[in-house]
Nucleic acid binder design. Sequence first.
DNA 1: TTGTAAGCGTTATCAG
DNA 2: CTGATAACGCTTACAA
Lengths: 326, 326
Amino acid sequence: MAAGNPTLYDVAREAGVSLATASRSLNGSERRVKDEYRERVLAAAAKLGYTVNASAQAVARGGTSTVALLVSDIADPYFSTIAAGVIRAAESEGLVVTMAVTERDAQREIELVRMLRGQRPRILVLAGSRFADEPSRATLVGELEAFESAGGRVVVIGQEDLPFATVAIDNAGATALARSLVELGYRRFAVLAGPADLVTARDRAAAFAAGLPTPPVIVHGAFSRDAGYAAAHDLDLDGIDAVFAVNDVMAIGAMSALRDRGVDVPGAVAVAGYDDIPTARDVSPALTTVHLPLEEAGAASVRLALGQESSLPSADVVLRASTPAR
Amino acid sequence: MAAGNPTLYDVAREAGVSLATASRSLNGSERRVKDEYRERVLAAAAKLGYTVNASAQAVARGGTSTVALLVSDIADPYFSTIAAGVIRAAESEGLVVTMAVTERDAQREIELVRMLRGQRPRILVLAGSRFADEPSRATLVGELEAFESAGGRVVVIGQEDLPFATVAIDNAGATALARSLVELGYRRFAVLAGPADLVTARDRAAAFAAGLPTPPVIVHGAFSRDAGYAAAHDLDLDGIDAVFAVNDVMAIGAMSALRDRGVDVPGAVAVAGYDDIPTARDVSPALTTVHLPLEEAGAASVRLALGQESSLPSADVVLRASTPAR
DNA sequence: TTGTAAGCGTTATCAG
DNA sequence: CTGATAACGCTTACAA
């Protein structure tokens, strides 16, 4: 029974009409086929279990209906939330999403862009912050420009550091957060700043410092939960009354480390993060953070690519129990 | 400059060879082309910025190199972890992943399977538990059988309730968990059991009860964090000393609800979950749960489809601070 | 409105 | 080992 898929030709034959008529009834633009034929075709298609061959369609039409999404790590809630938005918006436009993971490797990212280019997606969405002074940056930009000049649209979710349409993720909210914490009575801050050359991490750390009367202690590390844990584990807490991690997963890792060290949070030191991932409200104490409209950003990226302007909610400080008033 | 992509024909012309030779140098099977030609082709391709058109390739070859992945909700850590595994394994085989989201809607799932079938993926992975007595089940099975008889492979991640290759997710670990809790001294249990007709939820609740000397209190609801919160919010705690939620996100929601109610966890009641999602260890108290090898399951699904048998680690009980000895 | 036939970009067969 | 050329499944002028 390993039949292979029925083709449009099979359907046409079964329905007793021409290939063209079958095509028009099934996929072609509106109302150009006599109802009787159309119905016969539909019936034949159903009977044979026909599904259109998207590849053949793409070749014939000279383009696909897919959006390619490139993320750093799909298991990270930051990206999976963005992905959810991209998929939701894409589906509502009848587009299918193909996805790849860079693992924050710039070289790998370029290879993946090339591979995804091969799919001829309509839209290519790049989520995930870039590293400063990346030698391969020019190659990446060249690849993306080639994609656009061949008719594709690229959209970046994150910072405005690539010359393409971008859905901006607001990192300046860290300044407002810093001010809020100062207002609550905190004075001596440590910042778990992530990688020194990751644009997002750098921007957030800088924005946070900008909201402070005096410079914080800065600790670098990776951008992950485990790095947050490690940094907080080794942190010299002397005189520190609040820790700001440049993203929530680090902040949550840090809270775990402090707990394991026997440090009272928020009694001895307060903790704050950035992103407002879903679990931020479920850790104990619930995590103060800056809410980012990530799902919306994902959805906005495909709308932007389609030429539909849409505005994002702002990034708002969310004060929770991890930073009570002093 | 809106050139459109260069075709293989362009490359061949630029290199001064035939289409066939260009194809063979770039994609065809190994070593059949004189080095000089091959190099000329490679150079021409690089110069023109050629990338193979995957759709055309698929039409010509009669098949794609993609794996289609269907999940209930990509923002849920359970699925995003599985997705990470699928993507990792797929990439290592040179396969690209396309992905869609069912939102736990059986009708939608069928539509998506049809749409994904249109992409002619090599492999179709279905993650996400099914509902019992689904009237549309037969339709789904028919669709999947058609896919297989046309040469595709379907793999289900979850329970053995569909007649296809499946990577089993072990729900029986709930019995071991129950026994562990009894051994720790707990006696009166409440189970946040999720939807009564969701196979996974039902299996876990039943398996848990099977490990108990006396029947627990059962509360149904949705399978989400918010449902866990709601259920725990309304739960009659009288005489209850431990709550088991059939997945971690519910358990974590429940912990938040108990905290909001002013109930001491684990002092007054202990809480346990299932899955061992990454945040399970970061909530406070850290959550006792059953560890599931989700990433591995995702990766195993594509390996299984490719005929490479691979075994999964077992589901293990992980005792943490949310269930101290009584 | 329908059918014929010419592509779309690749691969694969089959002679040179 | 190379090069014409016929598929592959579908869309879309162009004719009828």
